[in-house]
Structure formats: C-alpha cells, structure tokens
Design a binder for these strands. Structure first.
Lengths: 207, 207
DNA sequence: ACCTGAACACCGTTCAAGT
DNA sequence: ACCTGAACACCGTTCAAGT
C-alpha cells in the first residue's frame, strides 16, 4: 500500500507524458496491437485512438494520416523481423548452413506473424511516403546480404555482387511466405510442409 | 421442366436485361474497370453501383457483400492470366524453353496488371468464401503443372509429383511479381530488370 | 502546444416500400 | 422478382474552440 505520494517526479512525468507528450508512442503501441488482433482489414484510425484513450482527431497531431500510422506499425514489424534474423545468424555460426537457416527463419517469422507481414508488404502501405519503413526494411534485408557476403568469402557461394544472389533468394522466400499465409499452395494441391518446401527450394536455388 | 412459351427477341432481351436481369454482369464489368483504374484501395461498392447506374442497395440482390463482388473481379483476373499462359505455351512449342517462357509470361502479366494481381492475392479477398476464385486460380495453376509434366516426360525435368516442382517455381514467380509491383527490390538496391531476374533465377532453380 | 467536439463527405449494409 | 429510398452505424479528415 505504498502511496505514490513520495514517488519521484520521474514516474509522474511518465504518467503525465503518456497522454500529453508521448501520445505518439501510445498510438503506435495501440496500432501494433490492433494489427495483430484484427489484421490489415480491421485496422482503423478511430479504433487506435479509442484504445489510446484519445479523441479521433488527436492522432493528426502526430501522424499525417492513417497510412502514416500504419507505416509506423509496419516499421516495427521490420525491426522484429530483423531481430529474428539476427538471432538466427548468431545461433548458426556454421556458414555452410547459415543461409538456409536464415531463409527458414524468415519464412517462419512471416507465417507466424501473418497480419504483420501482410501490413508490411500489403497494398495499403505506400512505402515511398515513409522513409521509416524503407530504412527498417533495408536493415532486415542487410541481414540477408551480410550472410551472402560471408558465404561468398568462404567460397560457399559464387563471388560477385551479393545483390545478384539476394534477388532470387528474397523473391523465393517472399513468395513462399505470401502463398503460405494466403493458403494458396494448399488450395492448388501442394501439401508439402512450409519448412520442408523452404529448405528444399532454397538448396536447389543455392547449390 | 417447364420452358417459357415465348422466346423473346435476342437483342431486345439483351438490352432490356442490362438493367433488370443482367445487372450481375453489369456490376462485374464495372468492378473490373474500377479495379484497373483505382486499384484495390479505391474499390468501393457504392462506386461500382454508381457506374452500373443503379442504387447502392441493388448489388445485394446479386452479391452477398462487397468481398463477393471483388471475388468476381479476381476470378476474371485469373481467367486472363490463364489465357496469357495458354498463349505462351502455344507460342513456345519447344519444350526446352517452355517452362522459362511461361515463367516470364507469368511475371510479365503480373507486373503489367498490378492492381489486378494485388486484388487476386491481396488480403481483402477471402478465397475460402469464393469457389469461383479457387477454380479460376486452379485453372491458371494447371497451365504450370501441365508444362512441368510435359518437361518431365521429355526428360527435361526429374520425374515425380509435378507439384513438388511447381511449389518452388510458383513461389519464386509470385515473389518476383509481388516485390516488383511493390518496388521493394529497387528499394533495397536490386536494380536488375525484372525479366532478366526472372529468367536467371528460374534457370538456376530448374537446371 | 496539444487535444476535444462537432461537422463533413463518404462507406457497407439492411429493410420497408415501390414497380 | 428486382430495384429504390431512407436509415443506421461506422469511417477518415478538418477545424474552430478549449486548456
């Protein structure tokens, strides 16, 4: 029953700030949660504002429009994906398996965060208008690029511009992720497990 | 088995039917046009009704809801894609190049009909609720499957369930299409032409 | 400086009423 | 049988007004 009477101004400031000062963070947090709950389809500016305990007009002090708020959520998604890829690299020091492991991790993250992934790559988002998303996305892509470079230096992959190798790989991983999320593969009779499909096609493309 | 006693004049019936009887076709036509004009984002039930010269409530006599109307448009997209693939097969009787030619035709169609393609694979569409889309999609997929089978019989591709070969190929083609439409490849510094990227990665995956 | 309240123009959807 | 008009609950966005 400690009364907050003697509590440092720190906490008070924090509380006070939540609704005037750090509304931006409160809104992105709510947006993140809403995307995960309802997907891109159910994402509404007014609902985000409601969850942040604020009027429908308030978000416009911090985001130009709805798509900019969605972009903030998408950027967070790329950060999470980047962290997942980073962790995989750290957990797989063996270079000969690192590329395959990272590919599997990419798809694994995508299919276990389908709403996120669809926001990150869906047509609702105009990436051109949101440098935040572009840099966050580039950071995740760099993980792939770095692994390719290391493999090249170790002689496991042919030398040359790593982008030339990254293009096909990323396209494949993105395709598997999207088609799996949309259940399109099973709809046409492809019942192979996502992980097996990923590993198999990646090896075929790489080696 | 009671058939109508008087068969009305064809042309007159056609004309009269357009606004009472063939509203369904008028609506899907308008939907098709609207998708091509404004993309999935600007697609509105009310606008479609407006273009068909009908009240906002009228479409509900022919479609359960907005997504069912969008599904009708998506199905048409798959039909068009199927026709493009068919034409490519007919124009490339040489089996050794048919698979690559078809892959290029797939991506080519996708990037030249970006709004269509995004509707066909976007999150706005619930394919499960629309058998029309599923069968139209399966028909396009069968083109790929057939070419793979023929290549297998000619010894150009390893024998086995053609689905096992189709999975990686389709995933790659879909990934290239989507990432190109979204400009994601150029955003991360991959400036290779779409056609070159497609051909190169397809050959690497296949041979 | 930051937020609210009210307003505007638009949606998707429903339903009684018209023809 | 098929369509309209009006209504409802919801949007995204703007802006004067409050604190």
């Amino acid at each position: 029953m400690a009364r907050p009477r003697t509590i440092p101004d720190d906490e008070k400031a924090q509380r006070a700030k939540y609704h005037h000062g750090d509304l931006k963070r409160a809104l992105t947090d709510a947006a993140l949660q809403l995307v995960q709950e309802k997907g891109p389809r159910g994402f509404t500016l007014r609902e985000v504002a409601r969850r942040a305990g604020v009027s429908a007009a308030a978000p416009y002090r911090h985001f130009a429009d709805k798509s900019q708020l969605l972009a903030a959520a998408a950027a967070q998604g790329f950060v999470q994906l980047h962290e997942a890829l980073d962790a995989t690299v750290a957990a797989n020091p063996d270079l000969s398996e690192q590329a395959v492991a990272m590919g599997k991790a990419y798809v694994q993250w995508a299919v276990s965060h389908p709403d996120y992934y669809q926001v990150m790559f869906g047509s609702e988002l105009d990436k051109t208008e949101s440098p935040e998303v572009l840099t966050a996305g580039a950071r995740a892509f760099d993980d792939l690029l770095d692994t390719i470079k290391r493999c090249q230096q170790a002689g496991l992959l042919p030398a040359g511009d790593p982008h030339a190798t990254a293009g096909p790989i990323w396209s494949l991983l993105h395709g598997i992720s999207m088609l799996t999320i949309g259940s399109d593969l099973t709809h046409v009779g492809i019942r192979e497990e996502t992980e097996a499909l990923t590993e198999r096609s990646l090896r075929q493309l790489l080696f």
